[in-house]
Simulated assay, not measured.
Amino acid sequence: MRLQEWTIQEQDLLIQFMTTNSWPYHDISEPGRELLEKSIEEGGYASDDVKTFWIENNENEKVGIVKVYDLQEDVPLFDLRIADRFRGYGYGSRALKKLTQYVFELPEQKIRIEGHTRHDNAAMRKAFERAGFVKEAHLRQAWFLPKENTYYDAVTYGMTREDYLAGTTTPVRWEDQQRHEKSIPRFDESIATERLLMRAPELHDSMDVWGAVARSMPSLRRFTAWAQEELTIETTEEHVRQCVADFIARKNLYFYLFLKETGEFIGSVGLCSIDWGIRKFDLDYWLDTKFEGQGFMTEAVKALTDFAFEQLQAERVEYHCDEKHSKGRAVAKRSGFELEGILRKNALSANGQDLRNTCLYARII
């Protein structure tokens, strides 16, 4: 199945599709030709703000249409219609998956996509759920049907960019009034130092990350749990995708490091295990072994820690590492972190084979 963009040359075909099928859950269940022609003329199906796609099956049959609008906004909306004789075959959910891919791969990086339907439209609601959308609202008596002079309840479903990138479905926190966390401040998504550009991860970084990790694997495996797993391009892409999603969600803030002079990727430094309530962050970092011994990681850690205190209003930044991780400990010391304690036999080694002592370093405001 695929989405094929509608063109003005297909006006008659679109009008035929709209007037020969029934739309019982739409405001206008039987749109007339004159109304459709006027809507097309005014850009209701194709403009800078609207795009319409045919939904075509593998036999090249036009089984439906989907119109996405408000494309100039951060949150596009859509209208999905499946022809009478093709309903019940799962085309709706598959079309929604194709549509979300189209929307979230636009260069403008849309924040979310959402759709609305009547609460009694069971087929559409099932399509939303199968496509990974989350029910976000139930609006009582919000859908007026002029033909019946009746109000129906309406429901809203949405998908966030974060969920799309991570391949997850995050339910709404309905108990939000019980939460008393501090608000998350706005902050820059890139940091410049004397020799480095530090920025948020992007999906196209996967090959650079894969090359650096592959080259550094013998060193990383000594003290890094995630380096114990088999490294492939696919697992690296999945890891980068998760980093992108976590950054958007403000769950973990990893910054990728690039040399200003050459643009080469050299490693990563991040703030993770974030507690926004008390403004506490854990530090995590690794460096391509090709670039060790030149002070790059110390430069990055100092910059990120200053960023945490200045822009994220951090109260405390911690760094935990194996007692035998001499390079990691040296970076922490050079970056102004103080050793607050050594926790004896409190964690497994990276390969999970024996107990190790953990050093706890910290900086406070």
Rank of each mutant, 00 (worst) to 15 (best):
residue 46 A to K: 08
residue 104 F to Q: 04
residue 270 G to T: 05
residue 85 R to Q: 15
residue 251 K to C: 05
residue 138 H to N: 06
residue 221 R to M: 15
residue 263 G to F: 04
residue 277 G to V: 11
residue 280 K to L: 04
residue 131 A to K: 04
residue 352 G to C: 08
residue 272 C to A: 08
residue 307 F to C: 06
residue 22 S to F: 12
residue 340 E to M: 04
residue 252 N to M: 07
residue 363 R to Y: 00
residue 344 R to S: 06
residue 166 A to G: 06
residue 309 F to G: 00
residue 345 K to F: 06
residue 66 V to H: 01
residue 265 F to K: 02
residue 279 R to L: 03
residue 75 V to S: 13
residue 222 R to K: 14
residue 160 T to V: 09
residue 346 N to P: 11
residue 158 G to N: 05
residue 31 P to S: 08
residue 254 Y to Q: 05
residue 140 R to A: 10
residue 293 G to N: 04
residue 17 F to P: 03
residue 14 L to R: 03
residue 359 C to V: 11
residue 216 S to Y: 03
residue 40 I to R: 04
residue 118 R to N: 08
residue 272 C to F: 15
residue 144 F to S: 10
residue 267 G to L: 03
residue 278 I to V: 15
residue 353 Q to L: 13
residue 165 L to T: 03
residue 28 I to F: 04
residue 258 F to T: 05
residue 44 G to W: 01
residue 204 H to R: 12
residue 365 I to V: 10
residue 291 F to I: 13
residue 55 I to T: 07
residue 118 R to W: 11
residue 301 V to C: 06
residue 96 L to H: 02
residue 298 T to R: 03
residue 90 G to P: 14
residue 344 R to N: 05
residue 183 S to G: 09
residue 246 D to C: 05
residue 227 A to L: 05
residue 81 R to H: 09
residue 112 R to T: 06
residue 42 E to H: 15
residue 239 H to D: 14
residue 311 Q to G: 14
residue 128 F to M: 11
residue 135 K to M: 15
residue 305 T to A: 01
residue 38 K to T: 15
residue 108 E to M: 07
residue 320 H to R: 14
residue 303 A to Y: 02
residue 344 R to A: 06
residue 361 Y to W: 13
residue 131 A to D: 01
residue 77 L to K: 10
residue 91 Y to Q: 05
residue 340 E to K: 07
residue 245 A to K: 01
residue 160 T to F: 04
residue 301 V to D: 00
residue 188 D to H: 08
residue 101 Q to E: 13
residue 7 T to A: 08
residue 185 P to W: 11
residue 118 R to Y: 09
residue 97 K to V: 15
residue 147 K to A: 15
residue 266 I to K: 02
residue 79 D to G: 11
residue 161 R to K: 10
residue 199 R to T: 10
residue 264 E to G: 07
residue 333 K to H: 11
residue 328 G to Y: 04
residue 326 S to M: 10
residue 74 D to G: 11
residue 193 T to H: 04
residue 298 T to L: 02
residue 246 D to P: 01
residue 322 D to P: 12
residue 161 R to H: 10
